[in-house]
Amino acid sequence: MQVTLADIRFSRDDWRLEADADFGRGIHFVAGAVGSGKSTLALIMAGLIAPDEGSVVRDGMNAAMLSLQFPESHVTGWTVEEEVRSWGLEPATVLRDVNLAEKAGTRPLELSRGELKRLELACILALKSELLILDEPFCSLDCVQKRTLCRRLAERTAGITIIFSHEQYILPAVDTVWEMKEGRLVNHGTVPHALEVWGDTAPLHIRWAVARGIHPANIRIEDVQEAACRTCD
């Protein structure tokens, strides 16, 4: 099971994006500043926009599922209940899981953005797609919901998960770190080695740890705390 970006090139006016990479099983974290091309690359990987050059090859899997950055963009149902049904899911179970059972008859766009993001993410995760692409999944979520999402992602033991995010604090454990840098997708490698080469755009706690010779096992704050305690011992 693998997704290959074969010499992808995409440009709009002066803005360019290039990617040549293989994504295998596991959780991939793609970092990058706002406007660096993360969302565009996510759309290309999901097959929703075509690159100018190159191709996306999905080996050993069906269609990709993408969680769009803005939850409003997913809405096609008139009520919350209809919205869950539009994903081909049973509303009762999903709504209970995200504590929105009492809002089944509410219009999706009348939910707060955090609630709507929670709802759409719950639907997408419930589909258990082999290739799951999440574009800024932590945006609009509070700290509690971000941690819940990290736990849900950790439960995904099969398939390929690609997280595009500029989140700096509450992060899931990942296998590989990538970065959109100056219009190119750069592979920093697998963790923990990737943390040593990530550089200036890594989350603050990672940079803090690396600068002090502390070697966390992964990108979460807990990993840094654990490594720091180990180093002190």
Binding site: L43, A46, L48, M65, L66, L68, F70, S73, H74, V75, T76, S86, W87, G88
Partner: peptide, 11 residues
């Protein structure tokens, strides 16, 4: 964006 969402949902 909604057209993309519909494609994702297979609608």
């Amino acid at each position: 964006r909604m057209r993309r969402a519909m494609r994702l949902k297979g609608l």
